[in-house]
Design a protein around this nucleic acid. Structure first.
Lengths: 234, 234
DNA sequence: GTCAGCGAAGTTGTCAACAACTTTTCGGAG
DNA sequence: CTCCGAAAAGTTGTTGACAACTTCGCTGAC
């Protein structure tokens, strides 16, 4: 969400290799990765001194990194009380997924108007691999392919604004994200939905592509509501 | 005789209540307001020293404020080159408006499922005022009412996630926003669209509410594309 | 026992000085 | 006159020290 690395293409006149102090961007990316990997749990305090030790960056850069992640909704900063990994309620999870639904719907529609023949082949390829993964019961692999498919659709659409927003929203749900794919029976339901999306984009039918994507994500929301009734997610 | 250390005896006037040093949040809000008011044009450099003078905040807080506004997409920061008001191309304006279209569509749908009788009256009220404003040729007032209507729909929906995103997107387009309402003939086109939105929400018809909102904003996108062809907007 | 008050420890917020980088200026060689 | 390069000016990036705030534990009166 920022153009901060100005790679001028010109080599540095003054090499400063020996410095191992990491800059803001590096610290931010590593910390985000750690949070998404679940190494810090929601609600856990992020004490600056500890982060300095772990990531080897200066306090200044650590603070900037925390500010950035707060902007992304991954971290919550309370004045004079420090930062903690943001807790996301189920209600908020549903809201976020609803927004993802309409955004990915928009992206799917745009992908349908822009897809090239080559990209269509890529879509087919992923669809095929998905079907195989489901038949083989490789659910983890199916989950990966799921992400690949959504990423490919976004790449085809080339909608930077929607793309960026979807990225930050997905990050906020990273914890729940892959759990869903592993629910018993989920792949059987979502596979035909994915295939419908692929077919619509291949057929260059924006309306159908959007509808297919929205139905797909709407069914995820249904599952979330079910989990709510069962009290599975806090 | 380099740095003469200041003895603890003389602390400039105590940094208590009376001190006018503004904090990050205040500086950020005031700077954002100034940018949205057009006091800084797109592409204009935001030199820290000048901002310190104008807003009376410390450099530290000015920098934090700039970071925040960069996160909101209002400002662009290039490393070692400072900040400037972000320029938004027409292509990006269209992208942002497309995202707004689907987000406000979602919000309208949700508003239709939640609207109370009292809120329905408020909608009617605004609709009535809009019609009168158009008939009286008060376009500036119509533009205000337009914003009020959208804000009311969002309030009714109570969708925090979508609400926040729409807010930041609207801010990015603040410059173009009100220009559109002032285009000749625009109110005549958009008034019935607004009335359709109101009717749909009143009728508690989510699908129709979303469709009405999307058609409305889609027509804005059409105008943007037209302006592009005419080369009016850079 | 307990609870208010007080102080220490731990953590975050802010600042001013300094370092590094970019842009501008200017003198001299060609 | 123009171009090159280095110094100067202007601006931003970073650091370490310190101030302010929160939390926790201790003491002692009741």
């Amino acid at each position: 969400m920022s153009a901060e690395n100005n790679l001028t293409g010109v080599r540095r006149s003054r090499p400063r290799r020996t410095d191992e102090g990491k800059d803001k961007a590096t610290a931010r990316d590593e910390l985000r990765k750690a949070i998404l990997a679940g190494e810090y749990m929601p609600g856990e305090r992020l004490v600056e001194a500890q982060l300095i030790e772990r990531f080897g960056a200066s306090r200044f850069n650590i603070r900037l990194a925390l500010q950035d992640l707060a902007g992304e909704g991954l971290v919550e900063i309370q004045r004079n009380r420090g930062a903690q990994v943001r807790k996301i309620s189920l209600a908020e999870t549903i809201e976020i997924t609803q927004v993802r639904m309409v955004l990915e719907g928009l992206v799917a529609a745009q992908a349908a108007t822009r897809v090239t023949d080559e990209e269509a082949s890529e879509l087919d390829e992923i669809g095929l691999l998905m079907r195989r993964a489901v038949e083989a019961g490789e659910f983890r692999r199916y989950s990966d392919l799921n992400q690949q498919l959504h990423a490919l659709v976004r790449r085809i659409a080339g909608h930077q604004t929607a793309d960026r927003l979807i990225g930050t929203l997905r990050a906020q749900l990273a914890r729940h994200q892959f759990m869903l794919s592993l629910l018993p029976g989920r792949p059987m339901v979502s596979l035909p939905q994915h295939e419908r999306i692929i077919t619509a984009i291949r057929g260059r039918d924006p309306g159908e592509a959007e509808a297919a994507m929205r139905d797909h994500i709407a069914s995820v929301i249904e599952v979330l509501r079910t989990l709510d009734d069962q009290g599975i997610i806090p």
